[in-house]
Amino acid sequence: MTLKRALIGLCLLALAACGGGGDRPPAEPGVLFAPNFRDADPVDFVNPKPTRFAVHGIDAARFQNTVNWNIARANGVNFAFIKATEGGDLLDPKFKDHWRGAGRAGVWRGAYHFYYFCTAADVQARWFIRNVPRVPGSLPPVLDMEWNPFSPTCATVRPPAAEVRRQMRVWLRLVEAHYGQRPIIYTTPKFYEDNGLHRFRGYEFWLRTTAKTPREAYPGQSWRFWQYSATGIIPGITGEVDLNAFNGSRADWNDWVIRRAR
């Protein structure tokens, strides 16, 4: 690594640790911790196993009501994607607390938006932008694309695949223009297949697959993050939480955040 890259990396680490708004930095900003947690319902993945990957993290929302972020970080939560918004008018009630807490603990943090098909894409993008601060050192924003069977108003709204991809591109372009970061796409196997998401070139994917490996569930698709469990048990977090792995080594992670955190 060149001296310039090293200095940039240190600056980003310090910014991520501080988190903006007077948050205090942790004692050891930028240190990566090995996972010290378990899965309440583990799956015997064939290859690769999640344990093959060096850098792990979580995603958090209102369901994670109590999180001691310092304890969680020390036990292997190196990054967190935090639910911010849904549709065009819903803000996750724990977003602000989780965002501040992760930042103060020095956890690399990014925000995600759960997409609704009964609200225009540009309205949803503006709602996300309104509620998610543009803080230096943040991970790229995430667009969460999955069918929503639980919404009383949107459960049955399932546009054709071409229209799904069009709406996604509207949201992705508006959010990228605001934050200066190309968003990550999160999805599930069924949604990915139904809507031909393999057509999105140049985007990084965060893939949910808790019964099969990404190679089995998304043949031929490259990925950056793998959500491999919904039943993680981590010191500092009350109840179960989603577990995620970064696709790469510790050195790959450091290079990636230098390139992608803004």
Rank of each mutant, 00 (worst) to 15 (best):
A162E: 15
F225T: 00
Y115N: 00
A34P: 10
V123T: 08
R24C: 13
F45D: 01
V157H: 08
G21T: 06
Y228W: 15
C154D: 15
R52M: 14
A230Y: 14
F150P: 07
R109F: 07
A84V: 09
R109A: 00
Y116G: 00
F45W: 08
T188D: 05
R38N: 07
N78P: 10
Q124A: 08
R38Q: 07
D23R: 13
W253I: 14
P48T: 05
A120N: 11
Q181I: 05
N47G: 06
I234D: 06
L90D: 01
R52A: 15
A60G: 03
A34M: 01
W256S: 12
G106D: 10
A155F: 14
V157C: 08
N36H: 12
G19M: 06
V55C: 01
N131I: 03
P48A: 07
N78G: 05
H56Q: 04
W127L: 05
R199F: 11
I233N: 13
K4C: 00
P136S: 06
W127Q: 02
K190D: 11
W147G: 08
K4N: 12
D89F: 08
W69M: 03
W226S: 11
G21M: 05
P25H: 01
V67K: 02
Y179P: 05
P48F: 05
F53Q: 10
Y115A: 03
A120P: 05
F246T: 08
I234Y: 10
A60N: 04
G137N: 01
